[in-house]
Amino acid sequence: MSTLLLIEQVLNGLQLGVMLFLMAAGLTLIFGVMGLINLAHGSLYMVGAFAAAAVAAATGSFLLALAASLAAAAAAGAVIELGVIRRLYDRDHLDQVLATFALILVFSEGTRWIFGSFPLFLEVPDYLSGPVTLFGGIQYPLYRLVIILAGLGIAAGLFLLIGRTRIGIQIRAGEADREMIAALGIDITRLYTLVFALGAALAGLAGALVGAIQSVQVGMGEPVLILAFVVIVIGGIGSVKGALVGALLVGLTDTLGRSFLPGLFGLIMEPAAATTVGSALASMAIYILMAGVLLFRPRGLFGVA
């Protein structure tokens, strides 16, 4: 277990973490402001990835593809907010779960209908592919490094947006007391659509960025959605800071667990058994982390008690 390998895996963990943050930030904002649990957030991730793959195939431009993922996911988000989601704000969580579950079915089968069942591929452009040499002679894929930096940049932008701008003030006020800000003359309906579309755009961008590493296929969104839920449970609902910390924790735990747990068990067990136990435990590591947080802080690390 060399230091180089460790640093590489930490970077991989960070990369997973920032992508989870893009998902979790939207989810947690939507929950915080509108009180809505949105299972269809994974579908918006998928929409972003498919839009990017389609545009990249048509134009050959990766930047256009990313723009398309933002636009398509934001548009899809705005459409479902206007058509379905806004009827759910004053319903109980059960209705929200069911309606958004129904949206998953519609989105997944609709995408399968349009694009077919085979996965699409989104190529990393030439100027972002290949390895880059970091401090200490570590070779690391340039694209993954760009993802980490882009994700951190977006996180910073989001904190500025929420902390420093007029829209951000309205969003925070909406979390605190939605009737009061309506009384102060803010068009709350438009604010809700805006927040939903913003969350959708972040999810779509994450889908496109990850789509270039993995394949773009129907059903790619839901595993990420569930990971984002784990992130939110760890970080605390409604807290963007919690989402960032939770996402990095989950990303690092998952990546480091997968790469090092089998080896660690190898120190005390036979190799074959160690691989089995280690990889099975690694696949459950983040849920065990979540259970631990639940034991000590049921409202999450940054949740209001």
Binding site: I37, S283, L294
Partner: peptide
Amino acid sequence: LSLRTTGAYFIMVTLAFGQMLYYFAIS
């Protein structure tokens, strides 16, 4: 574990534990 939480947390936590067993069965 899950009943330490309520509401939306409960939904997410039960969903996550289900997924945990799914990955366990696969691995």
